[in-house]
Amino acid sequence: MLIIAARTLILYFLLVFVTRVMGKRQVGELQPFEFVVAILLADMAAVSMGDKETPLLNSLVTIFTLTFAHVLVSYIALCSQRVRRLVCGRPSVVIENGIIQERTMRSLRYNINDLLEQLRGKGYPNVADVEYALLETNGKLSVLPKSQNRPLTPRDMAIPTGYEGLPLTLIVDGEVDHEALCRAGLDVNWLQEQLKKQGITSVKDVLFANLDTAGSLFLQAKETTREPVITCVR
């Protein structure tokens, strides 16, 4: 029993490491070859977890080899467009200028029902509203609607907008992100001062705090029923 528990733990931590090395993409975003590698890794690990007769080293070697091959192929694909095309393929245009490309769809073995289903999923129940649709290499459909059916943007209305950057997370679970503070050109003393103004004595009592580009500080204390404080600090 302990042997199986130990093998499971080893393989679990190895898989956590390997998936971190392999990248950040989710299952729905994987290329077909990445999906196959992920299934192979899971299968290798699952078999070795329960089967004591299979030497664990065999699985470790297989998992490391697969990871190495995967990272290598991904890296080569990153550098060479030809390799990328060979490994990942190319997106296919299935609707061009509002016309369904029958020949392309036949070569992809992609039927009209699949196309309509994906279009509905994207919020276009009417094919007539679509100018372009591309079947991406990861199997997802990208849709470009006709200009009359595009959602309205501030530019269409000539409404001026200000710069909106990424808010900086300053405190999470009572811990200060010094790097974010430094990036904002602020320091711990400034932060302490802001907390004191809100009646909070220690950083440890803060659940979450962030600062947006307009200079608004969002602050929520731990275990409180009070509404979060939003103050303009600039």
Binding site: L2, I3, A6, R7, I10, K52, P55, L56, L57
Partner: peptide, 11 residues
């Protein structure tokens, strides 16, 4: 011996 919790049996 095969069921004993040893490194050789784990690997």
């Amino acid at each position: 011996r095969k069921e004993a919790f040893r490194l050789s049996n784990i690997l």
